[in-house]
Design a protein around this nucleic acid. Structure first.
Lengths: 329, 329
DNA sequence: TTGAAAGCGCTACCAA
DNA sequence: TTGGTAGCGCTTTCAA
């Protein structure tokens, strides 16, 4: 790799001049700049980011911490972050915390050690304490507001809407899937749903899932129909869970949505590919990612923030696992 | 952040000594080492990877280039890579090339500029020429053998098996989904299938998909039933495509697998959650990721390679979108 | 067994 | 408008 000295030599100027040309800083004669640029071209020179970062104590890297890259919700989030960062010339180091605090801490260390200029964290079960006393800003993504800046969707409203839509469509014996206790976002949507259900004269049961993995989703699905065979409506804690329920219901010959309605949560891409296509509460994952990136960039650029906690709306996506609502309902 | 000087001062030794303690290099008195370690503890010192990297021209970072993080096959691959790297104290910078050569090249530059010690690339449509003349090793993942080290699954065999299993189960008018022309892996499985089909007296049609995205999958699904309504077997180019076909078939009241059999490719996690669960050709994505990581680490460590092109086997996963094979078949 | 010092490639200050 | 140079935090000679 060519260095700044090679460029300087080739252009017949000093490294200081090359540096100025590179960064558009300080005075530089137009002819000199041309000379330098030509040399850069010819050598295909790219500045060494490591050296730059060492001096400035700032890289062009952003750390993105994901709880589980296998859950399709998070890649979607990541794409939003990435696209926004890309447009600002910033790069991502993606860390997959695997829902393990140890890995999360390790990644935070890695981020520090590599002079990232900011972190976006979408992990959700850990204390925020690891994020205190850092030399760079942190934005939380998919995590409800706290003292740190954050971007999240309205879980309480999401749960509430799910309950309303389900009840409106006539389910009377609803089973609620409660996501992992330690996940605040999972609990929000759960609370939103349960609070709303309590306003109506309907029966309900609750099943708690230990995690958001595929395996647990399948396990819970089997259990549900044994424990609560009378269920005529399921409000799932996420789309993966809903897909598993749907699968198991069909396997048992239960007709969806006639005998059993299902509402998911997230609206991951696969939801519309299920059959019947999954009705769900949509979180705007891609937009959430983009917003988080924007917010972080604003903080990095020291701009005045209008809002440091951004809540995005959720919407009910009506597909085929819920019945058509009665017109005169 | 504490620096090596802070540690040296606290321990009452020179920075050179601290460095030696840190890296287990050269002589160092046991008592001195204790002293240093204590200081490190107390200051919660972590070496600055950037400075280290600048001097050594080597970081502890690995670049992983993915074509499309939204396609569930790739996160699975990424997890395999990550887990193996993690165990060796190496970190990942994941870049999402978005199937755009420009982005791919940008990421390669970023990787270079950040002194990665190696790249694993799972992109598939670009010339390998961007990967020549790098100062660090490159391993290709999910890309068939070439002069570079690579890890891939046997696409030809996969296509062949798909065709065999489908024909064995009685489909006579098969439609083959052909993945993007520029994707070698997609073409391998396609060729494998078509070569095999030609050995039998069955009709077949081909439809080409422009990409592996959700949108294109849905589009193709609709088209297929209009163009080739007589189809009684679909060999899809990947599971996403198969899911879309399945969805559309059920929507049209076509019974699967009785009237239409479907075989996917990849075995992404969602495949078993579909209903009927998707029969598919499994690529061992997680293992492929791990193998690629192992291979890269071997090269970095300058170990003798037994094989520089590792081919992993594919297997037919029989689920419910194919009929039971006749015993006396 | 330890320490002083050079140098990795870059930026930014100060002097010319 | 330009160039010389110190220094970012670390590793690695070389000398003590």
């Amino acid at each position: 790799m060519a260095t700044i000295r090679d460029v300087a030599k080739k252009a017949g100027v000093s490294v200081a001049t090359v540096s100025r040309a590179l960064n558009d800083k300080g005075y530089i004669h137009e002819d000199t700049r041309k000379l330098v640029e030509k040399a850069i071209q010819e050598l295909n020179y790219k500045p060494n980011e490591v050296a730059r970062s060492l001096y400035k104590k700032k890289s062009r890297l952003i750390g993105l911490l994901l709880p589980d890259i296998r859950n399709p919700f998070f890649p979607e989030l990541a794409r939003g972050v990435e696209d926004e960062m890309q447009e600002h010339g910033l790069r991502l180091i993606i860390g997959n915390a695997d829902e393990k605090p140890k890995k999360e801490i390790d990644y935070i260390d890695t981020f520090k050690q590599n002079n990232v200029i900011g972190i976006i964290s979408a992990t959700n079960q850990t204390e925020t304490s690891h994020y205190e006393n850092l030399d760079f800003p942190v934005v939380f993504l998919d995590r409800t507001a706290n003292e740190h800046p954050s971007v999240y969707a309205d879980g309480l409203a999401g749960g509430k809407i799910a309950a309303q839509e389900m009840i409106k469509r006539g389910s009377k014996r609803i089973t609620l899937l409660r996501g992992p206790i330690e996940l605040r976002t999972a609990q929000d949507r759960f609370k939103g749903a349960i609070n709303e259900i309590c306003n109506y004269n309907v029966n309900f049961n609750v099943m708690t899932t230990a995690s958001f993995t595929f395996d647990d989703a399948e396990k819970i699905a089997k259990e549900l129909f044994e424990k609560f065979p009378e269920t005529d409506g399921v409000i799932a804690s996420n789309d993966l869970g809903a897909a598993a329920i749907l699968h198991e219901a069909l396997r048992r010959g239960i007709s969806v949505p006639d005998e059993l309605q299902i509402i998911g949560y997230d609206d991951i891409p696969l939801s519309s590919l299920l059959y019947p296509a999954l009705s769900t509460i949509r979180q705007p994952a891609y937009d959430m990612g983009r917003e988080a990136a924007k917010l972080l960039i604003q903080i990095i650029d020291d701009e005045k923030l209008e809002h440091k906690n951004i809540q995005l709306p959720v919407t009910f996506i009506e597909r085929q696992t819920t019945r058509k609502v009665e017109e005169n309902g």
